[in-house]
Nucleic acid binder design. Structure first.
Length: 799
DNA sequence: AGACGCAAGGTTTTT
DNA sequence: CCTTGCGTCT
């Protein structure tokens, strides 16, 4: 295209240094509002245009779909602008709409489509769709390319099932939630079940290791992965198969990582493997046509509870860089000019964060005027606080024509704090939205439909089958499902193998045979179409055939109407997905649905006040920001009060909150707050005492008091009451390999290994005997395994 | 199979 | 205080 100098002129010297970087390592320390996305996008554009790098060789990793989308769109726009100058000699904006569209399509087809931009999870799930069949874990567990991705609730119930039913343990003592957390942490540190077990000194740890191992069995049996696996398995695959690693190492010559402070150990390992091809990173020195470019800000590291480790960012210089000091290094650039906030707001942020010890020296430099003073407000309680916020919003909106509701944000530490604010907003008729509430893909009806689709895409996915087999109600009760499932488990085959076999169903399903067969028929029909029909048609077909739509229509309650609407919304999402992805298939759609936090909210609400947690606010900006609930024990959270590094993370969270504000910032706290039903006196947050008085305007003459450390007492109320008393229904078949058969022609009981002759299926061999011979599993050479009732079938001994 | 009642537990949660 | 989930009852 044209000379890159065109767009370099939009950059300050530090940004330019980052963007002009070609090969080798570079750490970009990018303060809040310093234009890091700009640096990232311009650099990618520069790689392609100036250095003629093939877009397919560029891997840009983010943590959110939103960030990935933003980068992609901005690159597209950048290219389109260049192309406009080339083709028309005019700015893109001055062209006719259809000319703009033509340009953008062209740019997409020739450049952006080929870039590997996405989240860690989506990019590496894509890689696993190519290569997971080359992987086996240390116990030999294998997965296929049509794997399902289990969400958090699938995973939790799986773990609960293991704790209660497999290990017969008390789920009070081994809460599925905390066991799950431990397993997730293990995976995020790159530990397999065996690795993990070796590290466990005590009983509890070893039990968790056992759960972990069973959990992996269950995932493999379902041909399913959890979120952590999408990172961990590539790492392990790359380590065990050097051809696979070499392939991707060769593919991704230029790797960029956004929000590098949020990477965890496993993600770091993954990046390192791709960069170094498995060579020790310290000795790795071959930067020929290759780069690693990371952007991050240790001061905005707020996800340590999800195993993110900002020390990985702090170690970059030693890991990959030249390790030289700030003035001499050629592998680090700092972006310190802030383009977002007024000087008053920035000074406040700078002062606050200087109270942290663990950081990279960095000061945000203002580029804008001083602005209004930051206002710190004290209220009597949370109701008064909410009232204050809403009155401020109303006044500002009324007095400033340019300030519509969408320019305000209220940020809080915990979701529970939204309620009083919402109530006030409702009372005064101010429109608002709570960001990051219930996710679209977490709705029951959406999960139901997705479970149907997963059943079709991946028949081994027993979790999904069980979810939908009787949804909507089709007369398949618990007893029937248990009997089918028990047989499958004892045979060590997926439930679906039983369901699709008419004979087995007839043997096991009792009164519900017809219903089960109908269900299996529906699924099987659409399975046959997966390769030939577009995903949208399968979705539509299944939703109708399954009676799911019909059922919702018949209910015709307010709730079911809403659900119906959502299901149709999902169908639209599939259509949209097909438009945007030429490799759209049922599997790829399901992956994108599992990895999406929400539907693409393209109707960017301009007319509502935004309410969200501080965590959810990262990466966003608003002209007017309210930061509420600045009280000890709330913010900072009581769990951080006795842990210095946790307290520093809370402080970073506060720093994130402050730096969201562009024009005006309001901070507030209450003297008394309702918490879990009881009113409690509140102490002003320690963070307030760290803000310079002269930058604050207050509503009280009272100086903000020095904070008193209040350690709330944690209620420990788990009286465990012995082991779980759940009856375990089945006799162990291995204890009674033979049984008595009443209605067969043979007096001698059937045994495993017996050769039989079946009236219809011919020669076969018994592989299992259930419940003293009431039913048999017989393997026929052509028909596979069938579960058969010897009382109903004409069965002879064969030799 | 569905509704109702009670007990427990309640930071944050990009994927 | 309020929400969620499970178990029991009909």
């Amino acid at each position: 295209m044209t000379q890159p100098s065109d767009f370099l002129s939009h950059l300050n010297p530090s940004q330019r240094q980052a963007v002009e970087h070609f090969c080798g390592p570079l750490l970009v320390v990018a303060g809040a509002g310093s234009g890091k996305t700009r640096a990232l996008t311009y650099r990618i554009a520069g790689l392609v245009q100036t250095h003629r790098v093939n877009p397919e060789n560029i891997l840009a990793v983010t943590f959110t779909n939103k960030a990935a989308r933003e980068i992609r769109e901005r690159i597209e726009k950048l290219f389109a602008q260049q192309q406009a100058l080339n083709d028309y000699g005019a700015a893109l904006e001055t062209l006719k709409p259809y000319e703009q569209t033509r340009l953008k399509t062209h740019v997409y087809k020739t450049f952006t489509k080929h870039l590997w931009i996405g989240t860690f999870h989506s990019l590496f799930s894509r890689i696993l769709r190519f290569d997971i069949d080359k992987y086996a874990d240390e116990k030999g567990r294998k997965w296929q390319r049509n794997f399902s991705i289990f969400d958090e609730s699938d995973v939790q119930s799986l773990i609960k099932d293991i704790v209660v039913n497999k290990l017969n343990l008390d789920d009070k003592k081994f809460e599925p939630k905390s066991v799950r957390y431990a397993i997730s942490n293990a995976k995020n540190q790159g530990l397999s079940p065996q690795d993990f077990e070796r590290e466990q000194p005590n009983f509890r740890g070893r039990v968790i290791a056992e759960v972990y191992s069973y959990y992996e069995d269950a995932l493999a049996a379902n041909n399913a992965l959890d979120f952590d696996d999408l990172i961990l398995i590539p790492v392990q695959l790359f380590r065990q198969n050097e051809q696979v690693l070499a392939y991707w190492h060769n593919q991704f010559r230029h790797i960029l990582v956004d929000e590098y402070q949020d990477t965890n150990r496993t993600q770091y390992d993954l990046i390192r493997l791709l960069v170094t091809n498995g060579a020790s990173s310290f000795s790795f020195n071959n930067w020929q046509n290759r780069s690693i470019f990371v952007v991050g800000d240790a001061d905005q590291s707020i996800y340590s509870f999800r195993m993110a480790d900002f020390k990985i960012l702090m170690g970059f210089q030693q890991d990959f860089g030249d390790g030289l000091r700030d003035d001499d290094t050629r592998t680090m650039v700092k972006l310190e000019e802030n383009y977002r906030s007024t000087e008053n707001i920035l000074q406040l942020a700078n002062h606050l964060i200087e109270n942290n010890t663990e950081r990279i020296d960095k000061v945000l430099r203002p580029t804008r005027g001083a602005g209004e003073p930051v206002f710190c407000h004290r209220s009597d309680d949370e109701i008064a606080e909410a009232e204050f916020v809403v009155q401020q919003i109303r006044n500002l909106e009324r007095l400033n024509p340019e300030l519509h509701w969408g320019k305000f944000a209220v940020l809080y530490r915990t979701n529970a704090q939204s309620r009083p604010i919402e109530e006030s907003l409702v009372r005064w008729g101010v429109p608002y939205k709570v960001v990051g509430g219930l996710r679209f893909y977490d709705r029951k009806e959406i999960k139901d439909v997705l479970a149907y689709l997963r059943t079709i895409a991946n028949p081994a996915d027993t979790v999904s089958i069980k979810r939908v087999i009787n949804t909507p109600r089709r007369g398949i009760g618990k007893a029937t499902i248990d009997s089918l499932d028990a047989a499958a488990q004892q045979l060590g085959i997926p439930l679906w193998e039983i369901l699709k076999d008419e004979t087995s169903v007839k043997t096991l399903a009792g009164r519900s045979v017809k219903n089960v067969l109908n269900f299996a028929q529906i699924i099987q029909t659409w399975q046959g179409q997966v390769e030939t029909l577009p995903a949208s048609q399968i979705v539509q077909g299944v939703m109708e055939d399954s009676g799911y739509i019909q059922d919702l229509k018949e209910q015709s309650t307010e709730e079911s109407e809403e659900r119906l609407k959502n299901v149709l919304e999902l169908y639209n999402a599939v259509l949209q997905f097909e438009e945007e992805n030429e490799d759209a298939s049922l599997s790829t759609f399901l992956a994108s649905a599992s990895l999406a936090s929400d539907l693409d909210d393209l109707t960017e609400e301009q007319s509502r006040v935004s309410l969200m947690t501080l965590h959810a606010s990262k990466g966003l900006e608003f002209p007017i920001v309210f930061l509420v609930g600045l009280e000890q024990g709330l913010f900072p959270s009581f769990r951080s009060l006795d842990d210095p590094s946790a307290l520093e993370e809370e402080r970073r969270l506060c720093y994130v909150g402050i730096t969201r504000a562009q024009e005006r910032l309001f901070i507030s706290y209450a003297r008394e707050r309702r918490l879990y039903g009881t009113r409690e006196f509140a102490t002003p947050s320690i963070f307030l005492s760290e803000l310079p008085r002269e930058l604050l305007q207050t509503n009280t003459a009272t100086a903000l008091p020095a904070q008193r450390q209040k350690v709330s007492e944690k209620t420990t109320g788990t009286a465990s009451r012995g082991l779980g008393q759940k009856a375990r229904g089945q006799a162990d078949p291995s204890r009674s390999p033979s049984g008595t058969s009443s209605g067969t022609r043979s007096a001698k009981p059937w045994e495993v290994g017996d050769r039989v002759l079946h009236e219809k299926f011919g020669q076969g061999q018994i592989t299992h005997v259930f419940e003293n011979g009431k039913t048999l599993a017989i393997k026929f050479p052509d028909q596979g395994i069938k579960v058969i009732d010897p009382k109903l079938a004409v069965l002879e001994r064969a030799k």
